Amino acid sequence: MSSLEINNLHLWYGAFHALRGVDLSIGEGDFLALVGPSGCGKTSLLRSIAGFVHPRKGSIKIGGQDVLRLKPRERNLGMVFQHFALFPHMTAAENVAFGMKCRAVPGSEINDRVKRALDMVGLGQFADRKPRQLSGGQQQRVALARALVIEPNILLLDEPLGALDKKLRIQMQTELQLLQKRLGVTAVFVTHDQEEAMAMADRIAIMRDGELEQLGTPKEIFTAPRTPWAAEFIGSGNVLKGRVLAGENGKTAIDLGAGCDFSLGQPPGTGADEDVTVFVQAEDIRLEPTAGTEGLEVISHRYLGLYVEVMANYRDGVIKALLSPGEAEGVAVGARVIARADAARCKVMEAR
């Protein structure tokens, strides 16, 4: 296993500036997830690491060696693609052996390593089957074995679970995570699924317009997004517009509009009449019924099993709360409510 250091990386596709000065450090044995909307640069960054595209500026160091000018085969990287990319005319064993044959590994060693790799992913008994004779999950395991059998310095995974159904995808998330930890291989995982990134990664890198928006552990990303954009992208909470208002005796508070009462004091570095953005998780919102036409109107319920997602209209959008089924019964669709949250559970950021 090796560390990965990316410094000031710039990539252009013609006139399009795809990567804009990306800096990223990944320790030995770490599992990093790259997330972001389509076109943000996450796959371009993965392909730059692999050597499939050629950044004009910056450095990519694997184990301390700058590999930016090396060809893909000289970087000793394992790659797993979304659509498996297995050779249909080859058996599972032959697919796994392919990379070693290209590296001129002795035949006897190839056989031993193929057997170990297929056993490692639970497919030893399917060595002689061709891809069309395997399920989607089995094909993905063959692709994973093929990437790992060459003993790569870095394992690169480009949305490898995207083609699987939900149940199999969740199963493969667990298997892949456990296998990566058992082998200790450094891994970079591209996914468009924020929940998948949260479940699997040691750290998450959120990308936006070719730049790194935020890097942190899943807990940091979830509970303390650094920007309103990152908070909205994670999609697990509410991003609300507020204004710092002067109150009695010189005290200030954040006004979030009618129907919201979070008892937020003035954040450091702000002044009266300054706009701010407040982020609060949906599970930290309480909805309390109120009389008459005051407050917010509940507009929908969505049953999620352990929780009910309750939406209430808020200014020009909605505010979302995750309530227990019992709590949700007390705020039926059409009811008027006050949204409350503990100040300690809210994060105040600069306005967009």
Rank of each mutant, 00 (worst) to 15 (best):
F87N: 07
F87Q: 01
F87P: 08
F87S: 09
F87E: 06
F87I: 04
F87H: 11
P88R: 10
H89V: 04
H89Q: 12
M90F: 01
M90W: 04
T91M: 10
T91G: 07
T91P: 13
A92G: 13
A93M: 04
E94C: 08
E94I: 07
N95Y: 09
N95H: 01
N95E: 08
V96Y: 05
A97C: 02
A97R: 01
A97W: 01
A97P: 00
F98E: 05
F98P: 02
G99N: 03
M100D: 00
M100R: 06
K101S: 00
K101I: 00
C102V: 09
C102Y: 00
C102T: 06
R103K: 06
R103P: 03
A104S: 14
P106K: 06
P106I: 00
P106C: 05
P106V: 04
G107M: 12
G107E: 15
G107T: 07
G107C: 01
G107V: 08
G107F: 06
S108N: 12
E109A: 10
E109W: 03
E109L: 04
E109V: 12
E109Y: 05
E109S: 10
I110Q: 00
I110A: 01
I110W: 05
N111S: 14
D112H: 13
R113S: 09
R113V: 02
R113I: 08
R113A: 04
R113N: 12
V114S: 01
V114N: 03
K115C: 07
R116Y: 14
R116D: 15
A117V: 11
A117D: 10
D119S: 14
M120H: 03
M120Y: 07
V121M: 06
V121P: 08
G122K: 02
G122D: 02
G122T: 07
G122P: 03
G122M: 05
L123M: 05
L123A: 08
G124D: 01
Q125H: 15
Q125C: 09
Q125I: 14
F126Q: 03
A127V: 09
D128M: 11
K130L: 10
K130P: 12
K130A: 09
K130T: 10
K130V: 15
K130S: 07
P131K: 10
R132Y: 14
R132Q: 11
R132N: 14
R132P: 06
L134E: 10
L134R: 11
L134D: 07
L134Y: 06
L134F: 11
L134G: 13
L134S: 03
S135M: 04
S135W: 03
G136P: 04
G136E: 12
G136M: 03
G136T: 07
G137R: 08
Q138F: 08
Q140E: 13
Q140Y: 11
Q140M: 09
Q140N: 09
Q140F: 02
R141W: 01
R141H: 02
R141C: 00
R141I: 09
V142N: 05
V142W: 06
V142E: 10
V142D: 14
A143M: 05
A143G: 12
A143P: 15
A143L: 07
L144M: 15
L144S: 06
L144N: 07
L144V: 09
R146H: 12
L148Q: 11
V149W: 14
I150E: 00
I150L: 11
I150Y: 03
I150Q: 06
I150H: 04
I150G: 02
E151W: 07
E151M: 08
P152M: 04
P152A: 12
P152E: 01
P152V: 00
P152R: 03
N153M: 09
N153K: 14
N153E: 15
